[in-house]
Amino acid sequence: MKRILYILVLASVLTSCKDLLFEKELASTDPFVNFDYLWKEVDSKYAYFELKNVDWDNLREIYRKKIYSRMSEDSLFNVMGSMLNELRDDHTNLVAPFNVSRYNAYLKGRDNFEYRIIKDVYLKAGEYTTESFRHGPLPGANIGYIRYSSFMNTAGEGALDFILDKYKNTKGLILDLRENGGGNFSNIPRILSRFVTSKTLVMYNRTRNGKGRNDFGPFEPFYISPSSRIKYIGKPLVVLIDRGSYSATTFFALASKAIPNITLIGDKTGGGGGLPNGGQLPNGWTYRFSISQSYDLNKINYSEDGVNPEIFCELNWWDLRKDDILERAILFINSR
């Protein structure tokens, strides 16, 4: 009996050794290993080398020279983070327990938004907070103002019903997406579907699908289908944007170009026209970078550098008694 038990245990042990069957352990704090891993991942999957005119091979040469075996983690982070920032992409980050690398695209332009002005000057009569939206009628203008600060917050169907019903008799709406850093893409069609009456092609997307830097999958059309719920049709919608409008907001702005009654006013968006992925390095740090491209209806790829407004306008910080961009939007609606 004992012999039989020994045989059973031995058989179980012999067939239960993962180290014999899998590739070796890849965890490593070696700076060269982690640098090469990150460089290779970006090389094989990043979507914007050509648009941004980035010589990724050259950057490898430049930054690898700064790596040495005994360097501190902080130093390694700075080298790799700086290399990623050469991509000029806020969807590209290196995340360590002690720091996060960021390009900060919004700092490349002026600050064009201060919500305090909106509250003090334009929503004095009262501001509604309906789920993720803050809104109110603009005094004396018969225009509804809606603030949506982040696509991370759900654009609830019930909230949209309430808002569009409340302002159904206005002559126009202003949707303020300034400093909206993006978030959940599913909120884009949820909002835009209230402003179209038929299925509308608004953009194309394509994703890296091979090791070559120009290896992409097919162009995938992005449609907005009309909502069956309350819509706002036949009257202008002005969308306010600035450099702090990023990622999903850039996609929203790009999609708006294809919808006739939507006009963009303000400053160019910050960019972020690619969908970011996510992954982990051998030393446990995590990273993300853009793996897809977005194109307008003419299949021109520019949104990664920002979507331009139809009407350019900036905030005058010398006179905070008014919001110049909002005033320009009111002027536009009144002129329609």
Binding site: I4, L8, T207, N209, F222, S225
Partner: peptide
């Protein structure tokens, strides 16, 4: 007492594509 051993003869895998991202293509609605 019994001991069984099963070895895969035919193995089919359904795994993500190249870019992995589980939202690889956004198609609006």
């Amino acid at each position: 007492l019994s001991f069984s051993l099963a070895l895969g003869a035919l193995n089919l895998n359904y795994r993500p594509g190249y870019a992995y991202n589980y939202l690889p293509q956004i198609t609006g609605s």
